[in-house]
């Protein structure tokens, strides 16, 4: 009887003392990584056959030139007054 009681007391003491421990409570967040499907960049497409835009398929620089020219056309000072 006594060994069983001692074992039970030791187990209970272990549980009670376990509560006195100081576990890390600050969550460390980790940066996630995209889990979805891969996407293709826009310059990997050929220009539309009926469109005005012209760039070389796969050539990022020519696509950027095309889009930046189009972006500059939003400046009406340049577009209307041609300054």
């Amino acid at each position: 009887m006594r060994p069983v009681l001692i074992a039970a007391l030791l187990a209970a003491a272990g549980l009670v003392l376990g509560g006195c421990g100081e576990a890390e409570q600050v969550v460390v967040y980790k940066q996630g990584k995209y889990q979805g499907k891969p996407d293709t960049p826009p310059w990997d497409n050929a220009p539309l056959a009926y469109g005005d835009a012209k760039w070389k398929k796969g050539d990022k620089a020519s696509w950027e030139d095309e889009v930046n020219t189009r972006t500059r056309s939003q400046n009406e000072y340049r577009r209307i007054y041609n300054q």
Partner: peptide
């Protein structure tokens, strides 16, 4: 629509 892949910009701005 994928306008960037058509060499265009977002329609709202354009």
């Amino acid at each position: 629509r994928n306008r960037l892949a058509e060499g265009k910009l977002p329609l709202c701005a354009e």
